[in-house]
């Protein structure tokens, strides 16, 4: 890992409480993120990816309804120390949000305020963290819109979100997120709602911007095909837990956890498209309800390597392998052999 450590998450756990029931949406998530690095967070819908990222931003609901435990340390943009994000008072946290760590959301259609112009929404962010005159902020917004590849950026300042296409809106969202040069950018399924061709463009844009700024990116997706494009390292999540973590190449070459294997098999592959169009593999069953997780390995009801009497009894820990990978599976040593 090239750059300095920017983000350190340890034993992050999030639980929601509603009507007496407690849902452990995220538990025991730990990872580190360095400058210039892209970490992909992968998993099916409901596996806790968004909750994890919202916890990093401290954007989850307040205490009685939602509880966040563990520790999140973020490098201070100005000083050299690490900020204890979860302990930061709200006013200080507001100075961190959008400034040190920014976020791009899944739905470009609904994530921008429909009654405010693109320009107003971007300059608002700029002026929130970088005191400057309105005119200067406008020029800066034009520069940013240009940077994210929006044509005729100055005219776009007065456009309303609905006047832009989905792809353009997502670019505007990215421009807004980048406006204060955050050291960490979280992109929560930024391309899921877009057409395939637009998806590719946005991915290219993110890659280019990352090279230019050196920021670290947490890229959330449920599509491993996208991961191969963009990530350095992959963190696979299942039922709120990290189940495998590895660099992108080894993970694709030899997935250790049966869930990762299943995900890989469900990636549409261009080289097979001609022969087996439409016959895409899907992991049978569904993500468990976090209020009633299955005993033992959370994946056992759907696992093709399930060992009765073991997998449904003993909860696997997150093991570290000799080559620096992490995997949460009782049988992984057998798969290496």
């Amino acid at each position: 890992m090239a750059g300095e450590l920017l983000l350190e998450v340890e034993n992050l756990a999030v639980s929601f409480r509603s009507r007496g029931a407690v849902a452990d949406a995220v538990s025991d998530v730990s990872f580190r993120l360095h400058q210039g690095e892209t970490l992909a967070m992968v998993g099916e819908s409901g596996s806790g990816k968004s909750v994890t990222s919202l916890a990093l931003m401290r954007l989850l609901p307040d205490a009685p309804q939602c509880q966040v435990r563990g520790s999140v340390k973020l490098r201070d943009k100005t000083g050299s120390g690490m900020l204890d994000v979860l302990a930061l008072p709200e006013p200080q946290m507001q100075a961190v949000r959008g400034n040190n760590i920014a976020m791009v959301f899944q739905e470009p259609m609904t994530s921008l305020n429909p009654v405010k112009t693109i320009g107003a929404q971007i300059t608002e962010t700029i002026r929130l963290h970088r005191p400057m005159l309105a005119r200067a902020a406008e020029d800066e917004a034009v520069r940013l819109l240009d940077l994210v590849g929006i044509p005729a950026p100055r005219q776009r300042l007065t456009a309303y979100p609905h006047q832009l296409s989905g792809g353009m809106r997502q670019r505007a969202m990215i421009a807004m997120a980048l406006s204060c040069e955050p050291s960490v950018l979280i992109a929560d399924e930024p391309t899921t709602a877009l057409d395939v061709t637009i998806q590719a463009q946005i991915l290219d844009l993110l890659k280019r911007l990352q090279e230019q700024t050196g920021m670290a990116v947490i890229f959330i997706t449920h599509n491993l095909g996208v991961v191969a494009e963009i990530a350095d390292r992959v963190m696979v999540m299942y039922s709120g837990r990290v189940v495998e973590q590895a660099d992108v190449v080894p993970l694709f070459q030899q997935p250790l956890m049966p869930y990762t294997r299943g995900l890989l098999r469900s990636v549409p592959r261009l080289d097979l498209a001609g022969r087996r169009a439409g016959a895409l593999y899907a992991i049978p069953g569904n993500v468990p309800d976090p209020r009633r997780p299955p005993p033992g390995c959370a994946f056992h009801p759907r696992c093709d390597s399930f060992a009765d009497g073991r997998c449904n009894v003993e909860a696997p820990r997150l093991d570290s392998t000799a080559d620096g990978r992490q995997v949460r599976c009782l049988r992984w040593p057998e798969f290496v052999a």
Binding site: L59, P91, Q94, G98, N99, K116
Partner: peptide
């Protein structure tokens, strides 16, 4: 509960300003 309110919070706007600058106009429409 709209997404753009979360976006406004993610920018680092204080809750009150999220309310006055982003929520109110939409709610009044």
């Amino acid at each position: 509960n709209q997404d753009y309110i979360r976006t406004a919070r993610a920018k680092g706007l204080p809750r009150f300003k999220v309310l006055t600058r982003h929520a109110l106009r939409n709610a009044l429409l």
